[in-house]
């Protein structure tokens, strides 16, 4: 039994090539961080949102702007602060004296790629407003539902240091993110190249995405998302994903395991990973490759593991080493 593909293999092949082109273009601006780029593309293809965690200055904004440019999409950025209000995110109605009527002023969420910088600095009310937009893909202002233009993707960032005065995202809201991506320092060569790229022929340290050529347009991205959603998934691969998720609920180091959304996320992201790998079908390898990113924000470690300094990644790696891969 399998979830059959309704798209021809040529179509899929072409889609796969487009995705590779997309990745190459982004790599021109973002030096190194190949796994981060891959995971962001996977989230875009799977029509999901990502939470990026890393210290400041590792090129998160650059990544989003570069990505927006590859498909001529719009991009906006919100710096989350403790005094940020929900209407600053979604928009609001304003009374226009000339026309003597209320005019709706759309907020920064009306865009293709939204960078929510340091999302944990805003209070729960504002976070919830954004997370609702992510889920519903629409904003209601003055009782009027306003649809967001697809593709819409949120890239929220978090800073692992400076936890003072932050509002950590509750588990239920973390679940809305398809992947949680950890961004780390680049290695020596990559950093050397990065410093060279930023400082050559440029004034100041402004982000430069001029080298990036648009590969597709927003319509294409929607098509790619459709193709991704229709890739073949064998029932054993789905079982494998579900087994992994179910195992998180019984694993000794995990006090709260992932919910069914975890399994759904693994399959969605697995399909996108398969397309990125140039396949028109999903293998257990695809699921395994995104399992840690797809589950690390959906589990809560047991207190003793946290005291021992274990991270969700190590626990999940051990868990993946214990779940049997499907075979005949």
């Amino acid at each position: 039994m399998s979830i059959a593909s309704g798209v021809s293999s040529e179509h899929i092949h072409a889609a796969s090539q487009t995705v590779v082109k997309l990745r190459d273009e982004i790599s021109k601006a973002v030096v190194g961080q190949s796994s981060v780029i891959d995971q962001v593309i996977i989230a875009l293809l799977a029509s999901g949102h990502v939470l990026i965690e890393g210290v400041p200055g590792l090129g998160k904004t650059l990544l989003v702007r570069a990505m927006a440019k590859t498909f001529n999409g719009t991009f906006s950025r919100i710096q989350f602060t403790p005094d940020l209000m929900p209407s600053d995110v979604t928009g609001h109605a304003m009374y226009d004296l000339k026309s003597e009527s209320f005019k709706i002023r759309k907020g920064p969420v009306f865009t293709n790629l939204l960078l929510a910088d340091e999302i944990n600095r805003a209070p729960a009310k504002t976070q919830a407003a954004l997370l609702e937009v992510m889920q519903e893909q629409q904003v209601t202002i003055e009782g009027k539902p306003l649809k967001l233009d697809p593709p819409f993707m949120t890239l929220a960032t978090q800073n692992p240091i400076e936890q003072e005065g932050t509002y950590p995202l509750p588990e239920a809201q973390l679940d809305r993110f398809l992947l949680k991506i950890m961004i780390d320092y680049p290695d020596t060569n990559e950093e050397y190249q990065l410093v060279h790229n930023v400082t050559s022929n440029s004034i100041g340290d402004a982000i430069n995405v001029d080298d990036i050529q648009p590969v597709v347009n927003a319509e294409h991205i929607i098509n790619l998302q459709k193709v991704t959603a229709e890739l073949t998934v064998d029932s054993r691969v789905s079982e494998y994903a579900v087994n992994i998720v179910r195992q998180t609920r019984n694993w000794p180091g995990i006090s709260i395991g992932a919910g069914p959304r975890g399994g759904i996320a693994l399959l969605r992201a697995g399909r996108a990973a398969a397309l990125l790998h140039g396949n028109d079908f999903v293998t257990p390898d695809d699921i395994k490759s995104i399992a840690i990113a797809g589950l690390r924000h959906r589990i809560v470690l047991s207190p003793e593991m946290e005291i021992e300094g274990q991270t969700p990644d190590t626990i999940l790696q051990n868990l993946l080493d214990s779940v049997d891969a499907p075979r005949i």
Binding site: T283, D285, A325
Partner: peptide, 27 residues
């Protein structure tokens, strides 16, 4: 499946390669 299983058997028994149940094809 028989061909693939045969290869795995040879790898484990003849070459002493440690393959775990969790290893996917790519692994």
């Amino acid at each position: 499946s028989l061909l693939y299983r045969g290869v795995l058997t040879t790898l484990v028994h003849r070459d002493g390669i440690n393959l775990r149940g969790s290893a996917t094809e790519g692994d």
